[in-house]
């Protein structure tokens, strides 16, 4: 089997994808699949509410360990709501910037002082 489908509702046991630690469970399954060279489909079917905290741990932190191109080629999402799509895009764009320049946050604090 070259592809893995991760059913988020089943993985976290909830139709609310809201807590960061639940996102971690999804993240760990993606990592296991990626390390076995599998392409992953993340199914958001029946997810009712999403927070960016959940999406940061589930997906955002992938950009720490994998290049953007690898994630683009090997991860797809299915059955996500419109607002979920907007939130996920924000999470992904933020993660790409963050891991390119983690010191930017500290600089933004220094600019205030």
């Amino acid at each position: 089997m070259d592809n893995a489908t991760i059913n988020i509702v089943n993985t976290i046991g909830d139709v609310y994808g809201v807590e960061a630690e639940d996102g971690q469970k999804v993240f760990e399954l993606i990592i296991r699949s990626f390390t076995k060279k599998k392409k992953v489909t993340l199914s958001f079917r029946n997810i009712e509410i999403l927070t960016t905290a959940f999406l940061n741990t589930a997906v955002g932190q992938l950009y720490k360990d994998f290049p953007e191109e690898y994630i683009k080629d090997n991860l797809r999402v299915a059955d996500i709501s419109e607002s979920g799509k907007v939130a996920l895009k924000r999470v992904v764009d933020t993660a790409k910037l963050y891991y390119k320049d983690p010191e930017a946050l500290k600089r933004s604090i220094e600019e205030i002082i």
Binding site: Q61, V91, A95, Y98, Y99, L105
Partner: peptide, 21 residues
């Protein structure tokens, strides 16, 4: 600072979107 986009205190993981959204 915290309500600005992409500003987070989390270490090793990006964030800071919730308050700006």
């Amino acid at each position: 600072w915290a309500v600005e986009d992409k500003k987070t205190t989390k270490e090793g993981i990006s964030g800071g979107i919730g308050l700006s959204l």
